[in-house]
Computed example of a mutant assay.
Amino acid sequence: MTAPEPTVLATSGGHRMGRRTRLLFDSLVHHAVELSGVHGRRPRILYVGTAIGDAEATAARMAEAARVAGFDLTPLQLFPMPNLDDMEGAVLDSDVVWVMGGSVANLLAVWRVHGLERIMRRAWEAGVVLSGVSAGSLCWFQGGTTDSYGPELRPVTDALGLLPYGNGVHYDSDAGRRPLMHRLVADGTFPEAHCTDDGVGLVYRGTRLVEAVTEIPGKGAYVVRREGGEAVEERIEPRLLPTAPG
Rank of each mutant, 00 (worst) to 15 (best):
L160D: 00
V104E: 10
R208F: 05
A186G: 07
R16V: 01
F190Y: 15
V213T: 06
T11C: 14
H31L: 01
V128Q: 08
T207S: 14
E233T: 15
H182I: 04
L138A: 12
G13H: 07
L84G: 08
A212W: 06
E5C: 13
A51M: 03
A186D: 05
M17I: 14
R177M: 08
C195P: 01
G70C: 09
L46K: 00
V104K: 07
I216C: 03
Y204N: 01
W111G: 00
S27W: 05
A65G: 10
A66L: 05
L241N: 05
P179W: 06
A3L: 09
T74N: 11
R61N: 15
Y165H: 12
N83Q: 07
A212Q: 04
A57C: 11
R235T: 12
L116W: 05
L107H: 11
A135I: 02
A221V: 00
L92I: 02
P155R: 09
E117R: 08
G102E: 08
S103Y: 08
Y149C: 02
L76C: 12
V232D: 03
R239N: 08
L92Q: 02
N167R: 06
V128Y: 07
E230I: 04
E215S: 12
R41T: 12
L116E: 03
E5A: 12
L130R: 00
L73K: 03
H39G: 11
G101C: 08
L160S: 01
A90I: 02
T50N: 10
L78R: 05
F190W: 04
M100N: 14
A63M: 14
I52P: 08
M100R: 13
V91M: 13
H30Q: 00
A90V: 06
P75C: 11
D85P: 09
G132S: 07
T146G: 08
D93I: 03
G37I: 04
